[in-house]
Design a protein around this nucleic acid. Structure first.
Lengths: 356, 356
DNA sequence: ACGCGCTCCGTAAACGTTTACGATACTATG
DNA sequence: CATAGTATCGTAAACGTTTACGGAGCGCGT
């Protein structure tokens, strides 16, 4: 009533066709931009559809053409992830959508329930044919999902690199490079005994981060000491725990690299409790910049990147591997290591004088 | 090859029927647990389906029965939200799924792109019939989406209360109660000039929070001063900005209530810079507990709740309003104000002696 | 006048399911 | 033995859309 048109409930393309006194086939062609339809009738159809609020039923459409125009982003909202992913996924989603929307592709997020096996969940989603393509995240070092998707012949890309030999599209943050740069910087400041925090090595992230650290040490002729690799949760508590473990070490490190900037809050606290001042008595460098890092005292040296742009890249990688879109996104490589930039703070801004 | 069965690609229910030498109708009935099918043949069918990895095509199914067994959770990942929602949605999602999964309902998240109008986005999603029911979030004071969903006759519930007269299912955190309790506590500690931070009043949350604050003040006979309502972003920067505005006020408040615990980080910093010590010179109370609040110095007094359980409640509210499930979830009310619990910290643990 | 090509449109099949309906065989009942 | 009732299954229609195919009308060249 309040709007101008007749808000009669729209049933389907059939009613729309009757209302226009045109055949149903022509209506469909008009709506889908097919060539063999008079421009004038096309306008009439579009106008009527707009006015009556007609939108094609997705089920009918996808049943017929075997395509849904929907792309799924699977996330495992494990307890751990929920606590630390810190809107990483929502930000990535923004980047993904900015690309997909150009092609009238909708992105939906598929959150795997806590109590369901991610592999089984993915299998269900694939079989139900609810999406045309998939993006999976939180890749593991051995991840059966790659095979599953390859066998199902459904296009996919991974947020997180592959470490097995399988070749598939992925984009990942440059954990390797971050670890390298962190070690380089700390060594330049005089540090030789450097600890690192990381999640379990079954997680790709945990493995790659430590590997980069190890190789950087080697490059500087510093022996790799497994005792300095502190496995902890990526949270405030984890940071506190890292502080605990640091204090317990015999030959105490003069620097520590964190995998996640939230940990710095707990770490700072634990160190302060022990009378150790970050940025003076111990150097702290952390992967990944966040607004709150700026508010830590001393300001945290960390690495920044645009997660949004990572999403854009990932979307383009995925589309480039889909036949229907590949010519629009020509690429030489479908595997991207996404760079990060060092943001110097004060948490490591001191030269180490002598051994403690 | 590595698995036992024959991993031949499964085409549809027709192939499955041929393979079993049973009619396609019987196969469908067997899979869907319909009564008129021999138990033995049902077992055969289920076994074969499992072995061949058959899962019903969702498009065909939903086209036929007009239902998708999918429930959508729409989120607006506006820049603002992305920065401060802090996995609120992922946690709620966990709660929702724990209920939905009991009914073989899948939850998908529908993130509205930044550049699309939420109303139009929702309209598209509704018309495409991709979900059976919807949960919308971030309700506004005037929100056209309620009418849209009501007219489309699609079951829905809102994460966030309704302030217009419309009666529909919702669950919301008890912002009102929090503001009340915060004021009560501060007044009991001797404070009479209390500032509050909140988002814009167009957002339900911002409106309700300030309303609760205003009524609590009235109850204590304290005049409401609009100058003490500080509109800021719910982030560290927002907190810093709140600190700025506090310092700029003529008759400086002795206490401040924050809408989001992250803001405390920025607020603390700004106050420290001005030589004002939270928990000694000024009292700080914040809505909503988070792990990191425990690591602030002084520990933040805040309000805790289980967001997961809020999700459970919301799911039950939604199902109770869907004919197919309502008898399983009988309810007297479909509108829940979700309680929070005060967690005393040290940020307000002092008695105010005299006026400054 | 005829055929040819072109533009536009209508018809109907097909996508994979579910389900109303009817058919069959068997059992129980008189 | 006839009948009714029951358990189980097969048949076919229907869901809403897209698209291959063919047909109608028209202009144009021969």
């Amino acid at each position: 009533m309040e709007h101008g048109g007749k808000p009669r409930p729209m049933k389907g393309i059939r009613q729309l066709a009757e209302h226009l006194d045109i055949s149903i086939g022509t209506v469909s062609r008009a709506l889908n931009g097919k060539p063999d339809v008079n421009e004038e009738t096309r306008k009439r159809v579009l106008a009527a559809a707009e006015q009556l609020g007609y939108v094609a039923n997705q089920s009918g459409r996808s049943l017929r053409q075997g395509t849904t125009n929907v792309i799924g982003l699977m996330i495992q909202s494990s307890r751990e992830t929920v606590e630390n992913s810190d809107n990483f996924f929502l930000t990535v989603t923004g980047g993904l959508q900015s690309v997909f929307s150009r092609h009238k592709l909708d992105l939906i997020m598929l959150p795997c329930p806590h109590d369901e096996d991610p592999y089984e969940y993915l299998k269900r989603m694939v079989a139900r044919r609810i999406v045309d393509a998939l993006i999976i995240s939180e890749t593991q070092r051995v991840d059966k999902r790659f095979d599953l998707l390859a066998k199902a012949k459904i296009p996919f890309a991974a947020l997180g690199r592959s470490l097995s030999g399988t070749q598939h599209p992925w984009a990942d943050l440059d954990f390797d490079g971050v670890a390298n740069a962190a070690v380089d910087r700390l060594v330049a400041h005089g540090h030789r005994r450097i600890a690192i925090s990381a999640p379990a090595s079954e997680i790709n992230l945990g493995f790659v981060f430590v590997e980069g650290y190890r190789r950087a040490l080697e490059r500087h002729g510093i022996p790799y000491d497994p005792a300095l690799v502190l496995r902890a949760k990526s949270s405030e508590q984890g940071g506190y725990q890292v502080g605990d473990e640091l204090l317990r070490l015999e030959n105490q490190p003069t620097a520590v690299i964190l995998i996640y900037e939230l940990m710095a809050i707990g770490l700072y606290r634990r160190l302060m409790e022990a009378g150790i001042v970050p940025g003076r008595d111990i150097a702290v460098v952390s992967f990944r910049e966040a607004p709150r890092a700026k508010f830590l005292q001393p300001a945290l040296t960390c690495f920044r990147t645009s997660v949004h742009d990572l999403g854009v890249e990932l979307a383009e990688i995925l589309l480039s591997s889909m036949p229907a879109y590949s010519q629009e996104y020509p690429r030489t490589s479908r595997q991207t290591v996404w760079p990060l930039e060092l943001i110097p703070g004060e948490s490591d801004a001191f030269q180490l004088k002598a051994a403690k």
